[in-house]
Write a protein that binds this DNA or RNA. Structure first.
Lengths: 245, 245
DNA sequence: AATTTTCATTTGTCAGACATTTAAAAGTCT
DNA sequence: AGACTTTTAAATGTCTGACAAATGAAAATT
């Protein structure tokens, strides 16, 4: 593990990169203990503070974890789906909010990916998934539900659909995309009428899932995507009109 | 921006979280300058080293960038698709390699997501995309191509297909998934015979894309997925047989 | 007016100190 | 001997103070 003296970047960034590369290409394996901060400082010929800044960078990416005490230190972390998922949400959420991604583009992406789950979900869904989805539909149909609760239930519904695919990689990718979309979805005001329509589509999806009918799931998801985009466009049009007067 | 005195976590982690939250919920906007390290140290009542460790954590997530000099400091960073993409690859690659994700599961996820692009790609593809894909197919058909070059070309081919969807959110998600899969794909030994078959399927995909025929793209992608899984299973079976003797 | 110099501010790095945590090792008691 | 307590060494966490290096603004000079 060497750092490049010609590199213009900060020393702590260079050291973080060196260690990160060692982890990625397998020179450091899961749960292996890194040398102590003092040893690393000596190896890289920098101060302990600089090493610490490098380690904090790696910790922020969940690449290492640290433990205090005599036999503690920094250990290569086995990154979990949970952690990866959390990071993906942070990154994707900011990416969408900071780069003026249009509602339609985000909506297309989200439902396209969800549609990708349909065949697997149709095959692997079990009673639990169906029960969760029907329970969420029931919650959604209760009058007086706050917009927040509605959205939370919507996420839970789609989450169950994704999980029905029984593929942790898809779940991790999709759940991240769905949650990252939430802030954008919040521009929509869900009227009683639109909720009714969405509940219809949710019911269609659940029925199709129960019938192992992948094609119908996809069809309903396309309808849902189209309808959601309509709602979004209406809000945007209303805003523009309001700003013109 | 406050830190919670009851939180057991490291001070630098708490401070990083406080600033991260402020960025996520919009209290700090893009390109806004954070207080100087000395000021932050005073605000949070910690030492400058602790503040610096917190800032390095945020820098590792591309949430801030720092600049030296009189009017420098830490600025809220507009995270780009490039950066987000890079981070996703790092995270996903490690996630797959560290969590014993089976070849089949990863393969299913990858091709399912790619299939999600098909309808959009069929609609938005232009001559450039087709040209890129045909050029990669041509490269793939050259004899004596090294395994590395073959894989690189394969990635470029699929990247072009994804980009044809003309949806940056999909591109960012998909390109990450495809690249993260590469290390797993490397277990496969691409014989001349298997390359021939894959080139056939690539040609089918490109032809269907040219014809705006989304359904055929999806069909070919399913075939490609199935075939790739067969190749993977063969390798795994061969390994098991070898280890038994 | 253009150029150069000075200067204040800020991040990057270093050195050394002490606090805190932790598990092993040593000691003590029954 | 075995269970419990104390000690101890090693590691991270935090703080202080210092200096280097970069950088843009302001002042001085040509």
């Amino acid at each position: 593990m060497k750092i490049n003296p010609n590199d213009a970047a900060d020393l702590s960034a260079q050291i973080a990169k060196a260690i990160r590369d060692a982890i990625i290409n397998g020179q450091l394996i899961v749960d292996e203990r890194l040398p102590s901060e003092a040893e690393l400082a000596e190896q890289f010929d920098v101060s302990r503070s600089t090493v610490r800044e490098a380690l904090k960078r790696l910790a922020a990416q969940s690449l290492i974890r640290t433990q205090r005490g005599a036999f503690g230190g920094a250990f290569v972390n086995r990154i979990s789906f949970e952690e990866a998922h959390g990071q993906q949400i942070t990154t994707s959420t900011l990416l969408l909010s900071m780069n003026a991604v249009s509602f339609d583009v985000a909506c297309d992406a989200r439902f396209a990916m969800e549609r990708a789950c349909a065949p697997f979900a149709a095959e692997h869904r079990n009673a639990d998934h169906l029960a969760t989805m029907r329970a969420e539909i029931h919650r959604q149909s209760q009058p007086g539900l706050s917009d927040e609760s509605w959205c939370a239930s919507d996420v839970a519904f789609h989450r169950a659909l994704v999980d029905a695919a029984d593929n942790p990689v898809l779940s991790y990718q999709l759940a991240g995309a769905v949650e990252a979309m939430q802030p954008l979805m919040n521009i929509i005001t869900f009227t009683a009428r639109s909720r009714e329509r969405i509940i219809e589509l949710h019911t269609d999806i659940t029925d199709a899932l129960e019938a192992h009918d992948s094609a119908s799931i996809e069809k309903s998801l396309i309808n849902l995507s189209t309808y959601t985009k309509t709602l979004g466009d209406d809000v945007i049009a209303a805003k523009q009109k309001a700003s013109q007067t």
